[in-house]
C-alpha cells in the first residue's frame, strides 16, 4: 500500500513562511481532503509534494521512500499523478493526444525504434491509442477524441487533465480543484469515479473549495490556514470546528 506521509514540512520564501511545519497522512484506498481559504498555502504544499519546490526542512515520504529531494519527474515516475488548478493542457493537440502523453512513463519501446519507426514503436502507439480511448469512454468523452483540447468547455478540460493523470497509472492522485467550473451533475459523476479509484487502492488527495463536494466525498479532511494546519478530522467535525469557521469567515 502506497501512503503519502508529510513530516513537519516547512517552507519559507525569503522570510515569508509559506508552509509551517505541516504533517499529514494520505493513505491508500482513501480520499483525503485538503481545504483552506485562498492564500492558505495549499498550492505551495502541492508543489512541495510533487517536487516543483524544494523543502526548507521536513520530509515527504511516499510508499516509505523519502522523496523530499527528488526532482519532479522522478516523483511522478514514483507513482504520483496530479492535475493543475489552472488547467495545463496542450491546447492545440487533440484530446486523444493529451491523454496519450500520460502513458509516457510506461512506454517500453527503445529510442532507436521510435526514431526509425520500427514495428515495436508502431505497435505501442496503437496499443496506447486503444487504452486512451478506453479512458475517454470511462469519462464519457469518446466523442471528443479528435477535438483540440483547447476548444472544450472548462469542465471538459478538467476531465482531460484527470484522464491524463490516470494514464500515468499513479498510486496517488493529487486533484487541485477538480470540479471548479462544473455543475452538480458533472461533479457527482466525477465524485463517483474518484470513489472507484480509491476503492481500487489508490490514494487520493483532493484540494477543493466546494465544501459540499468535500463533505460528500472525503474520508478525512485537513484544513490549512496561513501555511499551518489548523484542524483535521472527519468532514463533519472539521466543519463544526470553531478555528475553521473563523478562518473562513475571517477571509470574508
Amino acid at each position: 500500500m502506497t501512503d503519502l506521509v508529510l513530516e513537519n514540512v516547512h517552507k519559507n520564501f525569503g522570510g515569508v513562511v509559506a508552509s509551517n511545519d505541516v504533517s499529514m497522512r494520505v493513505p491508500a484506498g482513501r480520499i483525503t481532503g485538503l481545504i483552506g481559504p485562498n492564500g492558505a498555502g495549499k498550492t505551495t504544499l502541492i508543489n512541495l509534494i510533487t517536487g516543483m519546490l524544494s523543502l526548507s526542512s521536513g520530509k515527504v515520504l511516499f510508499g516509505g521512500h523519502d522523496i523530499s529531494a527528488e526532482p519532479a519527474d522522478r516523483v511522478a515516475r514514483a507513482g504520483m499523478g496530479r492535475t493543475f488548478q489552472n488547467i495545463r493542457l496542450q491546447k492545440e493537440a487533440s484530446v486523444l493526444a493529451n491523454v496519450m502523453i500520460g502513458f509516457h512513463r510506461h512506454e517500453t519501446c527503445s529510442l532507436i525504434a521510435a526514431i526509425l519507426g520500427l514495428p515495436s514503436s508502431r505497435r505501442e502507439d496503437a496499443l496506447l491509442r486503444q487504452k486512451a480511448m478506453a479512458l475517454l469512454g470511462r469519462f464519457g468523452m469518446a466523442g471528443d477524441a479528435d477535438s483540440p483540447a483547447g476548444s472544450l468547455a472548462y469542465g471538459h478540460q478538467r476531465k482531460v487533465e484527470m484522464m491524463r493523470a490516470l494514464a500515468t497509472d499513479p498510486d496517488l492522485i493529487l486533484l487541485d480543484e477538480p470540479v471548479a467550473g462544473m455543475n452538480d451533475v458533472e461533479a457527482l459523476q466525477l465524485g463517483r469515479i474518484f470513489r472507484e479509484l480509491a476503492d481500487e487502492g489508490k490514494a487520493i488527495l483532493l484540494i477543493e473549495h466546494n465544501m459540499r463536494f468535500v463533505q460528500e466525498l472525503c474520508d478525512h479532511v485537513y484544513v490549512l490556514d496561513g501555511g499551518r494546519l489548523i484542524a483535521e478530522g472527519t468532514p463533519r467535525d472539521v466543519v463544526a470546528d470553531p478555528a475553521v469557521i473563523t478562518a473562513y469567515l475571517g477571509e470574508e
Partner: peptide, 8 residues
C-alpha cells in the same frame, strides 16, 4: 519569466 520547472 518565473518558469516553474521544479527542483532538481
Amino acid at each position: 519569466a518565473g518558469v516553474l520547472r521544479g527542483r532538481r
